[in-house]
Write a protein that binds this DNA or RNA. Structure first.
Lengths: 235, 235
DNA sequence: CCAAAAGTGTTCCTCGTACACCCATGC
DNA sequence: GCATGGGTGTACGAGGAACACTTTTGG
């Protein structure tokens, strides 16, 4: 190994993903049981070390795919955690990502030995190292970003109804929104394409299915939308 | 050196700061000439390696203080750059911060051997490695955040006038804002405390000095303010 | 026909923007 | 007094929030 900058210490560099899913009623988080010593068996975020010739973002995607089978997932780097003693074994710098997946697409991999499990936010188990803090910060980041940009769509299947979408937003912000304003506001963004079919399972009248208008989505993604009423109170 | 996670590669971890200043007319960026080989003498961001027992944020503050003499500076981690070949010598992961300083407080350190210099954004020299990309992304992040939160105050002295503040915003967004609306909007935030004295240098009528209302500042910092007209067009 | 959920209409009001105008002062 | 820049007043309109009301359909 060439070391051209002498006298400097090298560190382990890891990626960890906070994986959000939505089951139709609640936001959930996918955790695994740690396979390495110490704290073997304790709950942990999905993570792994960055390989020698690998970009960190690629590492995060790789770990996600290895463990959930999912590709092309929405994933966003949000913070580096690097306190000297955060891993008691050896100093490790970890780059934290949050990922939004369609929970229905997720299937537990057969190769997966460490029992991944979905947890509700208000029923999280004790976690290794500083992972609880990482989760807390990921959730804040998710709320912040979702108030301005339409990222929560990533948690739903390709087809969804507006009431489903509203339940999702209500789950993320732990509040009730006004149904009537919510649907009008979303429709006015021009991000949705109405489909012919209705979902008749959850109501008698039935709610129309929608899908994302992909080109409008990409175009409006950057600008500031007002998707959450009175967002200030959440920060 | 204990290595308890065998078979993993360790990397150099650096911090680099994009240091913004404002001279009253234009946004500027503080660069230094690289002291290490290769590319010695080429312009570079201020950075350094993370020390063995040091938090990355502390490393960024330390480097900033060593090189500018400034403490208690606004500094914010915004992205990790880690492409395998970004440093041709040896793989280095760098954590990028942007810093906002009062350019008048900055004084070149006597110990500083590598000729730090302020550059205008539209007259940047060629830079080392991927530093130009880092600057571009820092600027985007600055614009994004400053549209929602009152961070640009950090670039001004403790006392400032509203026209100064406006010039600063106009510099950041490379546009003209309406003077009349700008002052009313800022005053309505409740963030400013009017002082008795006027600045008579830049106009005949003179503009009152203001300072930040520190408690309001901290309290309102988190919520979404609308400090920039039509912000959407910048993203 | 009634309950329950989807979705539309209506009103109020805040707040952002545009632009006319007044104010203070040095020369 | 007049040019220059600082600041207030006013008017219009978009859009967010609150809430009454209609629509659909299964039982």
């Amino acid at each position: 190994m060439r070391q051209e900058y002498p006298g400097q210490k090298r560190f382990l560099v890891a990626v960890d993903s906070i994986i959000f899913g939505f089951d139709g009623y609640n936001i959930k988080l996918l955790l695994v049981q740690r396979s390495l010593s110490p704290e073997t068996g304790k709950w942990s975020l999905m993570g792994g070390f960055v390989h020698p010739e690998e970009d960190p973002g690629a590492a995060a995607s790789r770990v996600l795919q290895e463990r959930t089978g999912l590709k092309d997932v929405y994933i966003e780097q949000f913070h580096v955690f690097g306190k000297p003693d955060r891993d008691p074994v050896e100093r490790t710098i970890t780059i934290a990502y949050f990922a939004l997946i369609d929970i229905q697409q997720y299937e537990q991999q057969l190769t997966e030995e460490n029992n991944p499990e979905w947890f509700l936010l208000d029923a999280m188990p004790e976690m290794v190292f500083d992972h609880a803090e990482m989760v807390a910060q990921a959730l804040r980041q998710l709320r912040y970003k979702a108030a301005l940009h339409p990222i929560l769509f990533q948690l739903l299947p390709g087809r969804f109804t507006i009431p489903q979408l509203q339940a999702l937003y209500e789950g993320v912000y732990q509040t009730k929104f006004d149904d009537r304003n919510f649907s009008r506001k979303l429709l006015s963004t021009g991000l949705l394409v109405k489909l012919a079919e209705k979902d008749k399972l959850s109501s008698k009248k039935g709610a129309f299915y929608y899908q994302l208008d992909q080109s409008n989505y990409e175009q409006k993604f950057g600008s500031f939308l007002n998707l959450v009423p009175n967002p200030d109170k959440f920060f």
